[in-house]
Simulated scan of single mutants.
Amino acid sequence: MAVEYYDFGPYKIHHSSVFHTTDLSFAFVNLRPVVPGHVLVCPKREVKRVADLTDDENIDLWRITQKLGRQLESYHNSSSLTFCIQDGPHAGQSVPHVHIHILPRKSGDFENNDDIYEEINEKEKELKRKLEVDIERKDRSLEEMAQEADEYRKFVL
């Protein structure tokens, strides 16, 4: 039987938003991307901190991140990548499940390159507030996210 949802901390990620899986990890499109191609990679097992990953999970997570980063950079005609991990609540981690942000970067996408980290933090805080309280959301639809995931599945072998 196919998986309908993937656990991401206390949240459920619909399978249509997931575009790559291994035995240990999965990658999915972002509900509120900071830049085009902003995706997340995380272990299937709910792990709160990087230090709690097994060696196999750590290797798999970074192997997928490296592979997808290269493919997303090419797909989005980018020249660079930002990889971001917030490891623990005081580091800005809003979902207590290890995850790596992959963000394809282009010249001029942010006036100051480091502003992207503040944008990520703001998006995560905003998402957490919206998920905790049932307010009208401006998130992407499941259909929009599924369409993006379908595009990425084409190049993930």
Rank of each mutant, 00 (worst) to 15 (best):
E136Q: 14
V98Y: 03
G69V: 01
P33N: 03
Q66A: 14
D87I: 11
K138F: 10
D114L: 15
K125P: 03
D139F: 13
H38Q: 05
A27H: 05
G88N: 09
R153P: 03
V47E: 01
L131H: 04
A149E: 01
Y11N: 11
K48N: 10
E46N: 14
D87A: 00
L142V: 05
V41A: 09
V50C: 11
N113T: 15
S74H: 10
H90Q: 15
R137G: 01
L61H: 12
A2R: 11
Q66V: 10
V47R: 03
I116M: 14
S17L: 12
H15D: 10
R153Y: 01
D115I: 02
H101V: 08
E111G: 14
D56N: 15
F8K: 00
R153K: 14
H76S: 09
E148R: 03
E126K: 08
S94Y: 00
V3T: 15
H90V: 13
L142M: 10
A27Q: 05
D23T: 08
E73I: 04
K67F: 13
Y11I: 12
D134A: 06
E151G: 09
F83L: 15
A146H: 02
L131F: 09
D109I: 06
N121A: 13
E57I: 00
S141W: 05
V133I: 14
N121W: 03
D139I: 04
V3Y: 05
F28L: 04
N121V: 08
D114S: 15
I100N: 04
E143V: 15
T22M: 06
G69S: 01
D139Q: 06
D52W: 06
H97R: 04
D55T: 12
P33R: 02
P43R: 02
G88D: 04
G9F: 00
K44A: 04
Q71G: 13
I59P: 05
Y6K: 03
D139M: 08
E144Q: 15
S79W: 00
F110D: 09
E119F: 05
P89T: 12
L127W: 01
A51H: 14
P43H: 00
R140E: 07
Y152W: 08
H76D: 05
N121C: 09
P96H: 10
K106A: 08
R137I: 01
H14T: 01
E118K: 13
R105M: 04
Q71E: 14
H38P: 03
K125N: 08
K44G: 06
N77D: 12
I64V: 13
I102T: 05
K125M: 06
D55C: 10
